[in-house]
């Protein structure tokens, strides 16, 4: 028999009540290694510039540039540490939730029935820490895809397998 009951909006499962699982702590190390590499290169370029270019004007600006870079470096480090707590994911019966971002927090939910394919990736550095990232792709180019970084390899593989069975 066909029924068409009114939906009680308050009784719907609530995404906001789901507690997100934090990602692996060692991912913070990877974040810092990346920041160090980035700023290492920038500091290196500046120092080389100072050594090889002996012009008065550039020497004067040099210390300003270094301190600006230092401030940016400290700022980004603080943001990385604080925003690390915001990263988290959760699996429900019908969908996967992922949240990240400190200044601009974004929480995306992808229903399992809309997943096109999955990918587990491991970068060179992540391999050293036994970490992996899980990419969840949906259809189209509008950008509803997820990339969960900093899962342990075992965790990523397990979720990948679970989702694969859910999709099929």
């Amino acid at each position: 028999m066909f029924t068409n009951l009114e939906i009680d909006i308050d009784a719907l499962p609530k995404t906001e009540d789901v507690k997100l699982r934090p990602i692996s702590k060692s991912y913070l190390k990877i974040l810092f290694i990346n920041i160090f590499i980035q700023y290492g290169i920038l500091f290196g370029i500046l120092t080389l510039g100072r050594i090889f270019i002996k012009e008065e004007r550039i020497l004067n600006v040099f210390w300003y540039a270094i301190s600006l870079l230092l401030i940016l470096f400290i700022f980004q480090s603080i943001i990385s540490v604080l925003s690390f707590k915001k990263r988290g994911y959760a699996l429900r019966t019908h969908d996967i939730i992922y949240g990240k971002g400190l200044l601009n927090y974004k929480k995306t939910t992808v229903p399992f029935i809309r997943i096109q394919h999955l990918e587990t990736k491991q970068s060179f550095i992540a391999k050293k820490f036994n970490l992996a990232s899980l990419h969840v792709y949906t259809a189209g180019e509008s950008g509803g895809d997820l990339a969960i970084n900093g899962l342990t390899l075992a965790e990523a593989t397990r979720i990948n397998e679970l989702l694969t069975t859910k999709i099929n």
Binding site: N104, K106, T109, R114, T138, L146
Partner: peptide, 14 residues
Amino acid sequence: KIQAVSTNQTVFQK
């Protein structure tokens, strides 16, 4: 036809 949904919030909006 929805593929995914997200909520976005900056610090000021929070």
